[in-house]
Amino acid sequence: MARMHTRRRGSSDSDKPVADEPPEWSDVDEDAIEERVVELAEQGHSPSQIGLKLRDEGVKGTPIPDVKLATGKKVTEILDENDADDDLPEDLRNLMKRAIRLREHMDENPQDAQNKRALQNTQSKVRRLVDYYRGDELDADFKYSYENAKELLE
Rank of each mutant, 00 (worst) to 15 (best):
E34W: 05
E34S: 12
E34A: 13
E35V: 07
E35M: 02
E35Q: 13
E35G: 01
E35T: 12
R36G: 02
R36Q: 14
V37C: 03
V37D: 01
V37W: 00
V37K: 03
V37P: 00
V37Y: 00
V38M: 02
V38L: 01
V38Q: 02
V38D: 06
V38E: 06
E39F: 14
E39V: 09
E39P: 06
E39L: 11
E39H: 14
E39G: 08
E39R: 14
E39N: 11
L40D: 04
L40W: 05
L40E: 04
L40H: 07
L40T: 08
A41W: 03
A41F: 03
A41V: 03
A41L: 03
E42N: 12
E42A: 10
E42D: 10
E42L: 13
E42T: 08
Q43S: 14
Q43M: 11
Q43I: 06
Q43N: 11
Q43R: 14
G44I: 10
G44P: 09
G44F: 10
H45Q: 11
H45E: 10
H45P: 02
H45M: 10
H45N: 14
S46C: 09
S46I: 05
P47D: 05
P47A: 07
P47F: 08
P47L: 07
S48P: 06
S48N: 13
S48V: 12
S48I: 12
S48H: 09
S48G: 08
Q49R: 12
Q49D: 08
Q49N: 07
Q49C: 01
Q49E: 15
Q49W: 00
I50R: 04
I50N: 06
I50T: 08
I50Q: 05
I50P: 04
I50W: 01
I50H: 06
G51N: 07
G51H: 06
G51L: 03
G51S: 03
G51R: 10
G51P: 03
G51Q: 06
L52E: 14
L52A: 13
L52M: 14
L52G: 10
L52R: 13
L52Y: 14
K53D: 11
K53S: 08
K53Q: 13
K53C: 00
L54Y: 12
L54D: 10
L54S: 10
L54V: 12
L54Q: 10
L54W: 11
R55P: 00
R55L: 15
R55C: 07
D56P: 00
D56I: 04
D56R: 15
D56K: 15
D56W: 08
D56Q: 13
E57K: 07
E57R: 05
E57Q: 11
E57W: 00
E57L: 07
E57D: 14
G58F: 09
V59L: 02
V59W: 04
V59A: 01
V59Y: 03
V59M: 02
V59Q: 04
K60C: 02
K60N: 15
K60G: 08
K60Q: 12
K60F: 08
G61R: 01
G61N: 04
G61K: 06
G61H: 03
T62F: 11
T62W: 11
T62P: 09
T62L: 09
T62E: 12
T62R: 13
T62S: 07
T62Q: 13
P63S: 12
P63M: 06
P63I: 05
P63Q: 12
P63L: 04
P63V: 07
